[in-house]
């Protein structure tokens, strides 16, 4: 059975909006294993191997082109870049102060070094390039099939089962939490920074754990009742097809080009 064409785009989890607008896209039909491997390879190459400004600018350009080609929703993409770039802002303020090097300017008695600005710049380029490609490769991936994908990539069974179960119950427990929070609000609970609020949140966390513990017992009972014998069977099988060839070729050539630019 080939399921790779059935999973079009990731459903929103915990209220997060999807990156993909259209129900079908070329990338969504590419073998998820290939997308995952390319995401990891790109992260490793850009994070560990690239250092020169030229190579890093090129990596950022690759990320932008990939986002444009995958036609992700621009606002959703920008929103997800915000947290990292706030950190970048802090780095631009701090690193010129703390990095050793030739003082570029002196402000209020503090030496700001060019090396510090350059380092902050490298981090900004590197981080954004990786985030953009991750969005293209993984934002289009359904977390529901992430477990199967990893399993086909020989990740240990127990770990993938844990992942599949965690994904399955994330939304269930989020709803459980919203129910508990609504019940607290109905009883007139208003969170403030005081002892009572913290104790109440402690009980809320405790209640959430108790409910999930009980739920886990019911799950195990239901599994045993259906003859669970300690292993799961993979229902999704992926097949590498001709459609995947262009994606892989373009990805490999891009990665090699980045490495060549860095080391020549």
């Amino acid at each position: 059975m080939d399921h790779s064409h059935d999973h079009h785009h990731a459903p929103p989890i915990l209220g997060h909006s999807s990156l993909v607008t259209r129900p079908t896209c070329y990338l969504c039909s590419v073998d998820p294993r290939a997308r995952l491997l390319v995401a990891v390879a790109f992260s490793v190459v850009v994070a560990v191997l690239l250092k020169s400004p030229t190579a890093l600018w090129l990596a950022l350009a690759v990320g932008i082109v990939a986002v444009a080609m995958a036609r992700l929703r621009p606002m959703a993409v920008l929103k997800r870049l915000v947290p990292f770039n706030l950190l970048v802002l802090v780095l631009f303020l701090v690193l010129p102060l703390t990095k050793d090097g030739q003082p570029l300017v002196t402000l209020l008695g503090f030496d700001l070094t060019g090396e510090g600005f350059l380092q902050a710049g490298r981090i900004a380029l590197k981080g954004n390039a990786i985030l953009l490609t991750l969005m293209v490769m993984l934002g289009t991936l359904d977390v529901g099939i992430l477990g199967h994908t990893l399993s086909h990539l020989r990740v240990p069974d127990k770990l993938t089962h844990l992942l599949v179960f965690t994904v399955r119950y994330l939304d269930v427990l989020h709803r459980e939490y919203l129910r508990l929070a609504a019940a607290m609000k109905t009883r007139g609970f208003r969170p403030r920074l005081n002892r009572h609020t913290l104790a109440t949140y402690g009980y809320l966390v405790g209640m959430l754990l108790v409910r999930s513990f009980d739920r886990a017992e019911r799950i195990v009972a239901a599994m045993k009742c259906r003859g669970f014998r300690g292993r799961f069977y993979l229902l999704d099988h992926f097949s590498f097809s001709r459609r995947d060839v262009p994606f892989c070729v373009v990805s490999i050539v891009t990665l090699l080009a980045l490495i060549v630019v860095q080391y020549t």
Binding site: H161, Y169, H174, T197, V205
Partner: peptide, 29 residues
Amino acid sequence: LRKMDYERIPQVAVLSSAFFVASLIQIPG
């Protein structure tokens, strides 16, 4: 993973989803 046998997987998974959800709670201040 070695200390966790297959029967305990649902328990660990459900509890860790609960922790994931609980970490979304924001403290006012």
